[in-house]
Design a protein around this nucleic acid. Structure first.
Lengths: 312, 312
DNA sequence: TATGACTGATCGCTAAAACCGAACTTATGA
DNA sequence: TCATAAGTTCGGTTTTAGCGATCAGTCATA
């Protein structure tokens, strides 16, 4: 981008000369521009000096543009038109939650939360156009910080100072066993019982993996962990009797496959929960809008999930 | 032309924000714009306030345009482009005697002077494009004053204060008789001899008519004057023996028709002359250029005409 | 031909704005 | 924890736009 200085050219001056051209009269042009005739006359003279072109031929009785002036006035009108256009667009600027919003979401939430969310959003923010992206937390955080995303849905807390978050709801973890699993029959499960080698985990990077590890006090040794690449795979592995795992509430909704092979058991509350929240750059000027957005999302907390008691 | 005020929008401010957008750095943008970083920062803030749009998202480490800002910056660039275009055109403005020049000329001069003039002008002012118009003096004067013409060639003095003129050459009048006319044989003609009823005149409006009348001390009575609609017609009427008249020198050049029917006689100099000059609006900013133009025309005074002794 | 109305230019002054340097704030990273 | 970098804020200065008053042509009219 080459830089060409405008050496003092000003929109106001262009307005003045165009007014003179329109009205062919300095006094009336001054009136239209809301300045004194003296001031306008001076500015016109200055502009002529700047351009080194006599724009108007003044006889005491007539004002008429010179041939050169005529050409330049036409260009001046173009400049003004462009400027007015800018002002108009600025004035009709997108309101809150209009236009494109780039929304990231973690893989252990997206497929189970977003489908039900979309119609509500379409209804509540009719002018909103969502660009969805599903990635693991770290990737989302990077994308936020690089302004590749505007907001993201993830488990809180978000691991960065530069980001601001608001909680939306809390989601319970449920223990999911093969029906034949020894723990599947216990009347009541405690968290300490879950620290077993047959605890199946997602592969590295998924926050759900870390959440599971932090809930279960005894951790399987590295190298012995059994890793799944997605919640779906995890589910299939459980159905195949490979082991058990913790599955977030929403991921269970409407799930009927392997119904007889699998047993779902509740866990002690409120320990076995994760908080889902909306996250954005703290520096984003739309931060207040995003706070409202989070409040709306709170107001439509999915069934089976726990509404946030009060704004943190 | 509806008037939409720009409410304080300024090209400088647009320059500033575009610089920030280009360089993504306030300090460097300030340097490019030749102001302090503080000043630029303030102006950017003011513009954002004026537009009621946050153009940039500032974190301490990064500057990036908001979605709205991106849109407005694109429009800002358009405004700047239009303004730069204006400046460029102004800088490359037509020099003196370039582009279109609307030149008027009186009918008793045009057909005899212009044809020889054009090739010289084309050579001397290669960028000049002439728009010629032939009318009687009064019409030319009106056209000049209404800016419908830029300059005119006519007999001086020009009848208006608002006009400025420069003489180009003096043109003699010659007496033209039918060969059989009684005055055609006189050894020497005096002006007093010409005030006769058979003096043929052009119709009203032609300056040549007035010139003839002012030269010939005795005037034919109104109603008895014999009127021609053009110099050509006058010539034919003389050839037909209808009377005699005064014909300006240039109109005789190369004229061979009726050679044996017509006698041409000189008149006392310098009384029987008219001054041909160039005339323009005194208020026209190109007045100095026109003065030079007149000087050039003086330097190529046609043969048989009298150069002006010195600039008046 | 004088005169008054109209119009743009000019002048001295005032108010507003743009601008500057310095101090301040806040991330980042050694 | 300190140094660095970058944007913001603040108080004072300079520049500039603007104003009222006045001047100076021009035109129409009396």
């Amino acid at each position: 981008m080459s830089y060409v200085p405008l050496s003092g050219l000003s929109l106001r001056d262009i307005e003045y000369v165009v007014a003179v051209d329109d009205l062919r009269n300095f006094s009336r042009a001054a009136e239209r521009c809301g300045v004194s005739q003296a001031g306008l006359s001076e500015q016109v003279r200055k502009l002529e000096q700047l351009l080194d072109v006599t724009l108007f031929e003044r006889s005491r009785r007539h004002v008429a543009p010179t041939p050169d002036g005529e050409r330049l006035l036409a260009l001046g009108r173009e400049v003004l038109a462009a400027a007015r256009n800018l002002l108009e667009v600025a004035r009709a600027q997108t309101g809150p939650m209009e236009g494109a919003l780039r929304l990231g979401v973690i893989p252990t939430l997206g497929p189970y939360y977003i489908p039900g969310l979309l119609p509500r959003l379409r209804e509540h923010y009719p002018a909103l156009s969502l660009r969805l992206r599903e990635s693991m937390t770290d990737t989302l955080v990077h994308a936020l910080r690089n302004s590749e995303l505007d907001v993201a849905l993830m488990a809180l807390p978000a691991p960065s100072d530069a980001l601001e978050s608001a909680p939306i709801f809390e989601e319970s973890f449920l223990a999911v066993f093969p029906s034949t699993h020894e723990l599947a029959q216990k009347p009541k499960l405690s968290l300490s019982q879950l620290g077993r080698p047959d605890l199946l985990l997602l592969e590295d990077g998924h926050c759900l993996r870390d959440q599971a590890l932090s809930i279960c006090p005894t951790v399987p040794r590295e190298g012995e962990q059994r890793l799944a690449t997605s919640l779906e795979m995890l589910w299939y592995m459980i159905g195949a009797g490979e082991g058990f795992s913790l599955i977030p509430q929403l991921a269970l909704r409407n799930r009927v496959d392997f119904e007889d092979l699998i047993t779902v058991r509740p866990l002690p509350e409120p320990e076995a929960r994760r908080t889902i929240g909306l996250t954005w750059r703290a520096s984003d000027p739309r931060a207040p809008v995003f706070r409202d957005f989070a409040a709306y999302l709170r107001s439509i907390t999915p069934e089976n999930c726990h509404a946030i008691a009060k704004e943190r």
